[in-house]
Design a protein around this nucleic acid. Structure first.
Lengths: 290, 290
DNA sequence: GCATATGTCTGACTTTAGTCAGATATCGTT
DNA sequence: AACGATATCTGACTAAAGTCAGACATATGC
């Protein structure tokens, strides 16, 4: 009925008025929006004044005045940066912390109200993840983290769940050669996640082996983030880490049911090789010399 | 990893910055945002000044000044309303129409660019429909229309496609007793669609029969709009139309594969009756006395 | 016909946001 | 110590948005 462009514009209209409502709800605390935004940026951990200015896109004069007004209210304190006394850092006072919490409560309530109206909660959340990832398409940041951390565990859990859905015979981690976490920590290996505003969108593991090669394991991209080139970025980061660790040969195994993955490998310089392990799940094996 | 509230808030952040970008793109035509918004509201068919004021949430003084500035630019003309000379109606001049088209081109380009970045186009559009419908949950307007109109045809097409997906044996319209469009037009019957900002979100038909009852047919709610109570609103509207037409008994047939529909009927005063036709698809039959 | 309500407009005002040119202090480099 | 670069601040300004009281014309109910 509606063409794609009209559907995007219908979405824009709906969202514009919702965002407007969210903004005006912030006015209820008797502070102009600009000051409220700065206070919230500080509350969310941005302490460096220049950083806040860039994030909010403010002129330095305006920023300075907003900081002064928050200081006059007794909500923040500014001090010189330890390393560079030209830069200033801002912190919430106890009163500021209380005020920030009040803004947080408003945001949380609105989010909760929105969810509570709808019965298709999971579908709605998945749709929001998808759109937020698409809008912030350059926003995912790759971080090297411990494979035993919460973020890594979450990614691996999603990865295993997806394998279980896509393999005809299902998937049981215990039957697979689950890489030891220690093999994916420097200096033996590495584990990289893609984070977008707090949500992990993908991961990849570089697993050191006792042989003369390392393995790429657990490449996963969240459904909400597919088609954004994240898989490629993760693989590039893993290769970079491998080079840094002096690894000359990479191998990986995969399953032909994961067609996108196979395509990615072929397009990025991997060549198919014979089976090099006895894991029951993979049926395709690749190698790449760095 | 993230709790539902955090996921909604992540969405809000992503969307807020996107909306900001859309707003600033409107500034390129040398007109403040307020005036641009009024011009666009008029271009989209809102001619009544009071209506525009409510829609944009403007003070009457501010509204008046914005209208004046657009008039001075030669983009709009205002005249008194025919029925009530206190009210004013605003219309685009040819120059205003050109300017409006320029804004439309900006919006269309942005929507197109957004879509072109993403490979999961259909998933993205479905997600946008879902969220737009959820946000504008009170926004769907029920209209009585001709069952042969484009909107009605679209709804019926989606309805048949869904039956084909959900019935084990598939669905072929030709095998079903397809109601003649004439039976769903007053004074014999009625056809009602739920429209939300240009997108049809659901429909229901009231089909007059030669017997002493009328039938409810083609109750459908778009996947994007389920859980919002739209099915109930459509059924209520159909019953209201039936009462207006002096119909005392309603019947309908359905299939047990459509569980939500059966639940709705049972909850709203319908009672199960024996099969009253030989259509091959339905296996459940209901009646309601008005 | 009159009182009251309604829709729009005007004038006078305030607040918020944003801009720009210096002033000031500090840093890194030579 | 002197230099230019950098980070922030201050003052002086403008534009845009929003508020409010009252004016005016027109509609509605009695």
């Amino acid at each position: 009925m509606l063409d794609p462009v009209s559907r995007v514009r219908r979405f824009n209209r709906a969202v514009t008025s919702a965002v407007g409502a969210l903004d005006t709800s912030f006015l209820g605390r008797g502070r102009p929006l600009g000051a409220a935004r700065v206070l919230n940026a500080i509350g969310h951990g941005r302490t460096d004044v220049g950083d806040i200015r860039d994030y909010l896109g403010l002129d330095s004069g305006l920023m300075s005045r907003l900081l002064r007004s928050l200081e006059d209210e007794g909500l923040i304190e500014t001090t010189a940066h330890g390393d560079d006394a030209r830069r200033r850092i801002a912190r919430l006072t106890p009163a500021g912390k209380r005020e920030f919490n009040a803004y947080e409560a408003i945001s949380n309530r609105q989010a909760k109200d929105f969810l509570s109206y709808h019965t298709q909660r999971e579908a709605l959340l998945a749709a929001m993840d998808l759109i937020a990832s698409a809008l912030g398409r350059d926003g995912a940041v790759l971080d090297e983290i411990d494979p035993r951390s919460d973020e890594a565990r979450y990614c691996l859990g999603e990865y295993y769940a997806e394998l279980a859905r896509r393999f005809k015979q299902g998937f049981d981690v215990k039957l697979s050669r689950d890489p030891d976490a220690k093999d994916m920590v420097r200096p033996r290996g590495s584990f990289i996640v893609a984070m977008s505003d707090g949500l992990p969108l993908g991961c990849v593991g570089l697993k050191g082996t006792s042989g003369d090669f390392a393995e790429i394991k657990r490449l996963w991209v969240a459904p909400a983030a597919r088609g954004l080139g994240l898989g490629r970025r993760l693989m590039d980061a893993a290769e970079k880490a491998a080079r840094e660790l002096g690894i000359a040969v990479l191998r990986l195994d995969t399953n032909s049911a994961l067609a996108e993955a196979g395509q990615l490998y072929r397009r990025t310089g991997w060549t198919e090789i014979p089976r090099f392990n006895d894991d029951p799940y993979p049926d395709l094996f690749f190698e790449k010399r760095l």
